[in-house]
Nucleic acid binder design. Structure first.
Ligand SMILES: [Mn+2]
Ligand SMILES: [Mn+2]
Ligand SMILES: [Mn+2]
Ligand SMILES: [Mn+2]
Lengths: 218, 218
DNA sequence: TTATTAATTTTGGCTTACCAAAAAATTAAT
DNA sequence: ATTAATTTTTTGGTAAGCCAAAATTAATAA
């Protein structure tokens, strides 16, 4: 199995399982990876052989300790590159994901070390996602989704879970960028859309969007 | 044919042909690419189909205009990355080639543009090799191999043609780095080894090494 | 000009990573 | 408890990129 393929599988398993090595099924993997489930079946069998996952037939797949370690290292590379592209090379936060998707596969520990160093060892990428350290440790946080926020309270935007250019541009338009402060005015009970104040303007955010914005109570 | 494979073939054809689209044979390609000639035969047939080379059976292969353009763009990416790794990230000139060998395949014009910009649009890489511009144009120079230098004259080291870590470390040991001035003391007629002065020290350089050092008359 | 050597191509085969379609198993709905 | 829908696996097949060995062609030496 080619290294880049392995890495994309491990990373995707990691992301779907939410970082806690919980079980992932073929359909989800197939969808995220853009292949059909039959292809996933073959792949996870091989990853099992490599002892990077535990694959139980007709049930699902989860990362082993070794697989988890590899996944974390790929996630680290991805997020370091995203941060570097934004901070050092002046790319927009909506542009970096796609490029990092390729750069993440360049395996040279010294390279990542130098990039991280130059950035002052950042803990979060431009989307607010935590960057695992060399050992794979991720900084804990009390972030919640905006959809879980309570009325009247104040929050700070810490990240996003949708990295698409369309979504990020939409956020920028409303000045809903990382670090911005906001307060919840009301939450519509019938459709869960949220009306909030940000930069002295009132904005109504759809439930789909509130699911993709990560905040921290201020 | 996968893009990375195509790129490595085109780049290698370009290098062997010395940049003038002259004919290249299978054996040379096979050696440089680390495959057997049979594999090259198959590959050049496909590249011919793609109109990137002209392949004439049992005779040889040369780049078309399109192939040449692609090759130049890969060479540009490679050398920009090498320069960036050395100048911005502090890698040694003996370390950058290997990493650039991977980075060169990331195709994002804006990325290369930003790197080049940050470096002030350099014309030469850490080994003294010219960096083609966005249009593929290469700066002309009057560089010669040290093996072609004349006694008594003074020269400046402009580059190397062997990028191996072993060779570059050997040069550093004798302070024969890019930009260094030297004068030729004598040239041994029987084996063509060269005795030269550099940094007030006399060094004898083997013919194999003089073939790999590029100089300019001072 | 033969004979020998070297380079090239052909043929047959392998592995990886994918897909399509059919079969089997699981899960959800009635 | 059946039926229907969904997910998963199996089976058969493809294209890319490689190799080994045999056959061909070209180049070199005798
Ligand atoms: Mn990837
Ligand atoms: Mn990110
Ligand atoms: Mn390469
Ligand atoms: Mn170079």
């Amino acid at each position: 199995m080619q290294s880049e393929t392995i890495e994309n599988y491990l990373k995707t398993i990691y992301h779907i399982s939410g970082g806690n090595a919980s079980i992932v099924n073929n359909k989800q993997l197939a969808d995220k990876l853009g292949v059909i489930p039959a292809t996933v079946t073959e792949a996870v069998k091989k990853l099992h052989e490599l002892k990077l996952v535990i694959y139980e037939k007709s049930y699902g797949t989860r990362l082993t300790a070794a697989g988890s370690k590899m996944a974390l290292s790929i996630v680290r590379r991805h997020r370091i590159w995203e941060t570097y592209l934004e901070k050092e090379l002046g790319f927009g936060w909506d542009e970096v994901h796609e490029i990092a998707e390729e750069l993440e596969h360049i395996k040279n520990d010294k390279l990542i070390k130098k990039l991280s160093e130059k950035l002052g060892h950042p803990n979060f990428d431009p989307h607010g996602d935590p960057i695992p350290d060399e050992k794979g440790k991720i900084q804990k946080s009390n972030f919640i989704k905006l959809s879980e926020a309570r009325p009247k309270k104040n929050y700070k935007i810490m990240g996003v879970t949708d990295h698409s250019s369309a979504f990020l541009k939409y956020l920028e338009k409303h000045q809903l960028i990382i670090g911005a402060s906001l307060s919840i005015k009301t939450i519509e009970q019938f459709d869960h859309s949220i009306v909030l104040f940000c930069k002295n303007k009132e904005v109504s955010i759809s439930p789909k969007a509130t699911e993709c914005i990560i905040v921290q109570e201020a």
